[in-house]
């Protein structure tokens, strides 16, 4: 319940924050929803925390040239309730609404969640389906990479020492795209046993684009490209969807824990993929 002591800094600007991070020893405090519980249990013992909550540049949702930029310190509640996101990228808002609980969504941030790289976090399913990009800053470096390059393993990202997430970039959803996020909840923690995000576009009565993101199933979230390929070009009938969804776990080493075995998880991934795709298909114009 009580953390080890640490040094605390609260920069007021992005420049100041990057300078503080430059030494490479500091750990970022974003919303703290993952980090602080670990610190209280002393599983995490950072020597220096840099609190980004007072850096205005990191907060907020803006639209620019077909993209929406979500600042790293934007809270899940802001994402869930953002009029812009709800209208222009509803999948991300939907995923945010499934995270934790009201209080956690009031504090937790999209950047903090991504940096933590929890294999069962809700966001990555949606962000994979959205082919999101992540912009990373460091003194002297500003790079934007695909989410699939950012996440490398369980709790592991490519972010280097001193590097921070500046923002997450998602596309403005084209009109007529149907989206859905469906989640089988672990009843104690609220994390996803499996969570599936689907985006579907139709053209001439056929599925012209399918994107499916998966979380909770394996060591890291992923895009189920096999499912997408099987859907594209079909009419999106119940049978098409069932067949496509059934390959969602192919090649994935599914997780096992006291809440769900690998076999059940893999099967539920297919069931929830079917449900998410079905919902997205029915919403696609």
């Amino acid at each position: 319940m009580i953390a080890q002591n640490f040094e605390y800094s609260s920069p007021a600007s992005l420049e100041e924050a990057l300078q503080m991070m430059a030494g490479g020893d500091a750990k970022i405090l974003a919303g703290g929803m993952s980090l602080i519980p670990l610190m209280k249990l002393r599983l995490a013992t950072p020597g220096h925390l840099v609190d980004l909550s007072r850096v205005p540049a990191l907060d907020g949702v803006t639209e620019e040239k077909g993209n929406i930029r979500v600042g790293a310190m934007t809270t899940h509640f802001q994402v869930e309730s953002s009029a812009l996101l709800r209208a222009r990228c509803p999948l991300l808002a939907a995923a945010a609404s499934h995270i934790g609980d009201m209080q956690v969504r009031n504090m937790g941030t999209i950047g903090g969640s991504l940096a933590h790289a929890d294999p069962a976090a809700d966001y990555p399913a949606a962000l994979f389906a959205l082919e999101a990009r992540v912009r990373l800053l460091r003194v002297g470096s500003d790079r934007t990479i695909a989410l699939s390059d950012f996440l490398v393993d369980t709790f592991t990202t490519v972010a280097e020492a001193g590097e921070m997430i500046r923002e997450v970039i998602v596309p403005v959803e084209e009109a007529g795209t149907g989206v859905s996020y469906q989640k089988l909840v672990q009843p104690a923690s609220g994390f996803a046993i499996v969570g599936i995000a689907a985006r579907i576009r139709k053209s001439g009565g056929k599925i012209s684009m399918a994107r499916v993101g998966v979380t909770g199933l394996g060591p890291m979230p992923y895009r189920a490209v096999g499912v997408e390929k099987m859907l594209e070009g079909t009419a999106g009938t119940a049978d098409d969807i069932r067949k496509a969804a059934s390959v969602v776990a192919d090649g994935v080493d599914a997780n096992t824990d006291i809440h769900a075995s690998a076999a059940y998880r893999a099967r539920m991934a297919a069931v929830y993929a079917g449900r998410a795709i079905q919902a997205a298909v029915s919403r696609a114009a």
């Binding site: 002393r42 599983l43 294999p119 393993d153 369980t154 592991t156 060591p219 997780n255 824990d257 809440h259």
Partner: peptide
Amino acid sequence: GTIAAVGQRLLDTTAKMMIK
């Protein structure tokens, strides 16, 4: 110990990752 208390959800994944 403490890792057992909080790590349930992540134990399998983590062990696999370490072995990998």
